[in-house]
Design a protein around this nucleic acid. Structure first.
Lengths: 158, 158
DNA sequence: GAGGAATCCTACCATTGCAGTATAATTTCT
DNA sequence: AGAAATTATACTGCAATGGTAGGATTCCTC
């Protein structure tokens, strides 16, 4: 039904949370889960995906956690969506190795699906994580998502 | 995974087929299925949906079949998609009666989903069935999807 | 070096939607 | 009567989604 999966929503929220705290040390999954209302164990799995894709760095053990691998303004939403959902094809016939369509691409509908693809891709590519974070700040100005003492963690933490 | 269902693809192909034959009588589901490579029994169900929605007219019994209810150029793809897929929300939080999002719309991500929604909707609304039919004709100029004798059916058929 | 905090790995499960098949009833023309 | 067509409804197999669960591993601190 043309839905984006909840996993991707969670991943994006996690990235926003990490962007809001960018430069202030390692953030354990627990805190992200609390701040963004995401089931912890589930979030861990998605963070692992983001880590394997090189979008976040992670550190094990006590004092561990995650942080963005790059500056928020250089991370596009499209990268996250690609990693979480795999390549995006609104219809089967667009998949390179799919030939279930008996006309095999030689039909007038494919152009429509290409248009849909481009339109969506455009939105994802022109939106960065920092943009999302700024929007988030604007929406909840009086309600910082992390408590001030978190900013006072040991200096060597990051 | 942001996929459009096969049902919708079939429905669109059926509409294109009916558009190609617009004005030339009633087209039985069987012929549409053959021409477009769609499982007949499955197609019948989708045609029934299109009929209930008022997009096609249908006639039972021998000599029956379907025809477009309106001129192809006045039927937008968005109408068909709406009928087949129901209202389109790329993320749950956009659904009017959904409040599973703990921030309930007061989050920076919603704008992203609204953008996606608009972008896709735009494509669907600016494309008409006649446009799809013309593209189809252009793609298969040497290969008419219906045989000439079908055009010679009894004049009173429509 | 023990213990706790954290990530990582893998398996499992329940629900849902999708694609398609099956059966049969009903209408209509010939 | 019989064939051709739509209509209605139920069922099935499959895959994806949204989690949960258990434990292994790594790392810091005391």
């Amino acid at each position: 039904m043309l839905k984006v999966s909840q996993r991707t929503e969670y991943a994006l929220r996690a990235m926003v949370e990490l962007a809001l705290r960018y430069g202030s040390g390692r953030v354990p999954a627990r805190e992200i889960a609390d701040a963004q209302g995401i089931p912890l164990r589930f979030l861990e799995q998605q963070l692992a995906v983001l880590h394997k894709a090189g979008l976040v760095e992670s550190f094990r053990g006590a004092g561990g956690g995650c942080r963005l691998a790059r500056e928020p303004s250089t991370i596009r939403v499209s990268e996250i969506v690609d990693v979480m959902e795999g390549p995006f094809f609104p219809m089967y016939c667009l998949e390179p190795e799919d030939h279930t369509c008996f006309q095999d691409g030689r039909c007038g509908l494919q152009e429509l699906w290409v248009d849909v693809h481009s339109a969506v891709r455009d939105v994802f590519e022109r939106t960065t994580v920092s943009a999302l974070a700024m929007r988030h700040r604007r929406m909840t100005p009086d309600n910082p998502v992390w408590s001030p003492e978190d900013l006072l963690r040991p200096a060597g933490a990051n």
